[in-house]
Simulated assay, not measured.
Amino acid sequence: MMGLKAHAMVLEKFNQPLVYKEFEISDIPRGSILVEILSAGVCGSDVHMFRGEDPRVPLPIILGHEGAGRVVEVNGEKRDLNGELLKPGDLIVWNRGITCGECYWCKVSKEPYLCPNRKVYGINRGCSEYPHLRGCYSSHIVLDPETDVLKVSEKDDLDVLAMAMCSGATAYHAFDEYPESFAGKTVVIQGAGPLGLFGVVIARSLGAENVIVIAGSPNRLKLAEEIGADLTLNRRETSVEERRKAIMDITHGRGADFILEATGDSRALLEGSELLRRGGFYSVAGVAVPQDPVPFKVYEWLVLKNATFKGIWVSDTSHFVKTVSITSRNYQLLSKLITHRLPLKEANKALELMESREALKVILYPEG
């Protein structure tokens, strides 16, 4: 392969602006794929990494675990998950995590998202060693041979697919744990960030009868309604009791069948546990960093209700594939989540927009 000059925005020190750097790429490792990034999503968790709040992050690193792009070169033979041979020019998306396939969680418990050896592009893969390009805030990325890839078409919306690679797949994981059909069920979603809003589209796609969103931003609640929520409740304008009454009225006094915590705040459980019906299911997916403990009523909320509380950690390849399927049928709705599109060199501004919550979702374009 001819030498390639790639460029990326690199986090060299926590809480210091990302630095624009060039990387010379010659041969890529056997079985790897060199991809030109066409769309990179900025995730809220990227802000935690930038601030040094995620212990997995090495320095220096190219952030960005949400991406979509075009194959430049494949060293050897590589097929996607449908068995299609990949070649230069193909558009692809990929699972952000690579599991070892050998440990207890991969082989015995069949929970590969819990693999202790899991490698994640843009999160725990530094850029100091060749081939450097292991994150999506970059013009190119080099994908390891073990990466799970899906070929997509020119008709697909790469911006939405990139965005779906994290919050979409994690939201799908939360719903995938529910052991029943969603037909006839009432789903309550706490939070209207990307995770919660993907949850709205997934709940609707899986056949939920009522989808209710609780959040504090009028703009995000309006968006939740536009993409399929039946009822939205502004937690800044209503009391806990008013919200509880609204949900009890809809559910004939029972409470929600399924609740998705997508706020990122452990305190959401204090309200959500009162909204859950007896025998209900609570997926806690938004709490992504350590927080203060919350006072939990074990008897009233857990035992008496015979409730299931399920922690949701990231996602695996099955969630990735199912998310691409649902996303591809809802591009028009999900594209409304993207509030800002910026060139790669403005990645620092993108992080500021996400941290201030001025942006719901930012997409970076390497050459934009």
Rank of each mutant, 00 (worst) to 15 (best):
I202W: 07
E237Q: 15
Q190R: 07
L260W: 06
G199I: 13
D249C: 01
L269V: 08
Y178I: 01
L206K: 15
G280H: 10
T251K: 01
G168V: 12
H252C: 12
N219C: 01
T238Q: 13
A262Q: 12
N219H: 08
I227F: 06
G196Q: 11
G253A: 07
R220I: 11
S167P: 10
L150R: 10
P145Q: 05
D265V: 15
L276E: 03
R236P: 00
P218I: 00
L275E: 09
D265A: 14
K245C: 01
S283Q: 08
T251D: 08
A162K: 12
K151L: 11
G216S: 11
E274R: 11
K222F: 03
L233D: 11
S273N: 08
Y178L: 06
H252P: 00
A229E: 10
R244L: 14
A203Y: 05
A203H: 03
E274P: 00
F258T: 05
I259R: 14
R235V: 09
F198C: 07
E274K: 09
D148N: 15
A164G: 13
C166Q: 07
E180A: 06
A183T: 15
S266W: 02
V187M: 02
F182L: 15
L150E: 05
I202T: 11
K185R: 15
S181L: 14
D230N: 15
G193N: 10
D257I: 00
A256D: 00
T186F: 02
D148Y: 13
G255F: 07
S266T: 04
I214P: 00
I189N: 06
F258W: 09
T232D: 03
I227N: 12
A215P: 04
I202A: 10
N234D: 10
L221G: 02
E242K: 03
D249S: 07
Y172N: 05
F281K: 07
P145C: 02
